[in-house]
Design a protein around this nucleic acid. Structure first.
Lengths: 244, 244
DNA sequence: CGCGTTTTGTTCTCACGTTCACAAACTCCT
DNA sequence: AGGAGTTTGTGAACGTGAGAACAAAACGCG
């Protein structure tokens, strides 16, 4: 896992920086499409919604791709960031759980343009196995492993209800997938070496609610007479139901 | 915005803690439904996927709700966290942009059980104005302000294509909304005092791709001959298209 | 009643991330 | 060629968060 071919870049990019690189990439693409050939850290930072010092420090972790007194070449920097992230070629992706959300994800056209390609859709519900989304058929869940091997899939997306998510994750890991994007509202247990990222609507809304309730003391500070029985439901429907 | 009625809790809960409270809330609900009356920090931490020291420190920011030698009363702690977050009563929410994703969000049943209630769906496309999702009709976008006032909405969800998101955000702010959950892949500019949280599929996938490409040097290290023209597309379809 | 056991709440230390501020490096103009 | 003006890259200061470790508090039992 060592001995890189060329241009040994500094090997430790901070996690916080990694999380911002995709934002810079998108901002650069936007600038590029607007016909901008060169930009300063100030401009790019504004487009990305961060401050310029942070931007410069982030970029400095990948190397010195700017020119003092001038700024950054948009195309060049864009390619360098794409290469660093690893999206200079498409990553094959499978989506498991074709309910409302899975359906929306399958139709999401931003995949292709941002370095990903959906190669398979899977669902346990036999009623879905006839259907097609875009030009992809929905396959039975037990075909996960052959499909993963066939397309050399490394990234899996879980869009099932919460109660099914752990089993899906286990199967993905078993099939060789080592990066999982989880939309189901549950904590996944995975072995060492497998990355899981979580996207959780309820959590985001609750964080907003927290701040909102400090902003407007009059609205939500009215504490109900007693603890309501149903605050949070560990509901199965979780991410969604099975079909639209 | 001072002078709280009772039990003045420490006023500065760290942001990192706030982001975990919803996870604890869900774990507690799960324990509660499993019939557990009491739990230790160790158990709860395991259920929430964090370590117990962090959990205890987080909870200590809200007050002393545990009993040494015993642990936490599940129901009591659940209510205290819900109250701290501000989800002891439902927050009215509007969703703008009823494409694939907006449709999925509108059908998301976890809203209700987690402290939120969708009170209106809006879209600029007249073809949608006849349709109904669940029992909610899709309204024209220009009815945002009256609907926000009518239902005292404080939280807005943007599920439009990227090119429309800023205009929607401006309208939301104009209508009095001060918390926005943005699914469109674009950076929103909002005035001071307005909170924006971003959910971005492409970014999450790209972060996974970054780590994946360091795990399997053989897969994505094959650098293409030259910078590909289409790495990232600042595409309009962005979050999705207009209808399923 | 006192002692051992359990588990919380908190303190201390270290690592990480952000921001400031400035030297180094480049361009442009005279 | 040289100096003024820009803009990057980075060192240093600061703030926030994570984890270890332990004292304080509750319980149970003899």
């Amino acid at each position: 896992m060592t001995a890189r071919t060329s241009a040994e870049t500094a090997r430790d990019i901070p996690e916080a920086t990694v999380a911002r690189l995709p934002v810079y990439l998108r901002a650069l693409t936007s600038l590029s499409e607007a016909g901008t050939a060169t930009c300063s850290s100030e401009e790019l930072a504004a487009a990305a919604g961060v401050n310029s010092a942070k931007l410069r420090k982030d970029l400095s972790h990948l190397g010195s791709y700017g020119t003092r007194g001038v700024g950054y070449d948009v195309e060049y920097l864009r390619y360098q960031i794409a290469r660093e992230i690893g999206v200079t070629q498409d990553w094959p992706v499978v989506i498991v759980g074709i309910g409302n959300l899975g359906h929306a994800l399958a139709n999401f056209s931003g995949f292709r343009s941002r370095g990903f390609r959906v190669v398979a859709l899977l669902d346990a519900d036999p009623r879905l196995h006839d259907t097609t989304i875009g030009d992809l058929p929905v396959r039975p869940f037990d075909q996960l492993e052959p499909l993963v091997h066939k397309h050399a899939v490394a990234i899996g997306v879980i869009a099932t209800p919460a109660h099914a998510a752990q089993a899906v994750a286990d199967a993905m890991v078993g099939a060789g997938i080592r990066s999982i994007l989880n939309f189901a509202p549950t904590v996944l247990a995975v072995p060492e070496g497998v990355d899981v990222r979580k996207v959780d609507l309820s959590i985001e809304l609750q964080i907003l609610a927290y701040h909102e309730s400090r902003k407007t003391p009059g609205v939500a500070d009215v504490v109900p007479p007693a603890a309501r029985p149903e605050i949070d439901g560990v509901d199965d429907d979780a991410a969604e139901e099975v079909i639209a």
